[in-house]
């Protein structure tokens, strides 16, 4: 089936996707925080901080205002049908980004790294960030994450073996890197975080895989049983670190751990760790000729 792109409708749909992502936390994230709140000790700072976070999420959704003022790097993972002009899709996403920034749903967040000037509308070199793939469906899918600077700054990349961590070139070594990264992050990435991990690849691919994991639902199960076991183990152990919400101490340090992998060179073994804050803003849109579905 041939897919015809109605650019105006597509632009409006992308505007709504960005608005939704900035102002409305996904239901599975809210549910995980509610459970965490119930699990923390009554009257503890951890419990009260989770309460403030949940109250903030409710207010942001009701008023259609940003959950967090750092509306982050806008990461678009776009999947298109055969024959669609990537240039047109890119231009439409850029236009939608400008519109949403004007409406104070996004903060002007793109700074020229050479001159130091803020572009004022979130557009610039590689901003917003758009990653393209193709599929066989007559629709465009956009997975959008807004990832703030605080959480990006504590994201990390390790090269195995690592003598400081006594970590070898195997899954046990990966485990140690993740424990170290989350411990180093403390509350700085706005804990409780969601941890996306990319094993292998080169440095760039490893991070793309790590960030892609952030689109998985918190309660899903990794299809690779070995990785599924590692996700479970890391989730349990990271929550023993006692860092807690915002680093004030407590039982909830992470809300989820998700692992993906890519083939690597025999000589390289990278572990890429993408830390996402509790304000885990991600939504998906599937845009076809007859309907637009948001999740």
């Amino acid at each position: 089936m041939k897919f015809q792109l109605n650019e105006e409708k597509f632009r409006d749909a992308v505007v709504e996707l960005i608005r939704l992502t900035s102002t409305d936390l996904p239901e599975d994230v809210i549910e995980a925080m509610r459970q965490a709140q119930a699990n923390e000790e009554d009257g503890s700072p951890a419990q009260s901080v989770l309460g403030v976070m949940l109250q903030n999420a409710t207010m942001a959704k009701k008023d259609s205002t940003p959950v967090c003022q750092d509306t982050g790097t806008n990461i678009h993972y776009v999947t298109v049908p055969e024959g669609i002009s990537l240039r047109k899709v890119e231009n439409t996403i850029i236009e939608a980004t400008r519109i949403v920034t004007q409406r104070a749903i996004l903060r002007p967040n793109a700074v020229d790294s050479v001159s130091g000037k803020n572009s004022g509308d979130n557009t610039g070199v590689m901003s917003p960030y758009i990653h393209f793939e193709e599929w066989d469906q007559p629709a465009i899918k956009i997975q959008l994450a807004l990832k703030g600077g605080g959480s990006e700054n504590v994201s990390a990349q390790y090269k195995l073996p690592d003598s400081r961590l006594k970590a070898g070139r195997n899954l046990e070594g990966v485990y140690k890197c993740v424990v170290d990264a989350v411990n180093q992050a403390q509350g700085l990435g706005c804990a409780p975080g969601v941890i996306g991990i990319g094993i292998g690849g080169d440095r760039a691919i490893g991070m793309i895989i790590a960030k892609k994991q952030l689109f998985r639902k918190l309660m899903d199960t990794n299809p690779n049983p070995e990785l599924a076991r590692m996700e479970e183990r890391l989730y349990t152990d990271l929550n023993k670190l006692g860092i807690g919400p915002m680093g004030f101490g407590g039982k909830t340090t992470v809300l989820g751990v998700k692992i993906g992998s890519a083939h690597r060179l025999p000589a390289s073994f990278f572990v890429s760790i993408a830390y996402m804050c509790w304000a885990d803003r991600r939504h998906t849109m599937v845009f076809s000729e007859k309907e637009v579905i948001y999740d």
């Binding site: 959950v67 003022q69 605080g150 915002m246 509790w278």
Partner: peptide
Amino acid sequence: LHAVGGAATLLAK
């Protein structure tokens, strides 16, 4: 003084 990171709508109020 530590404010709750990410609680942006609530703090703006």
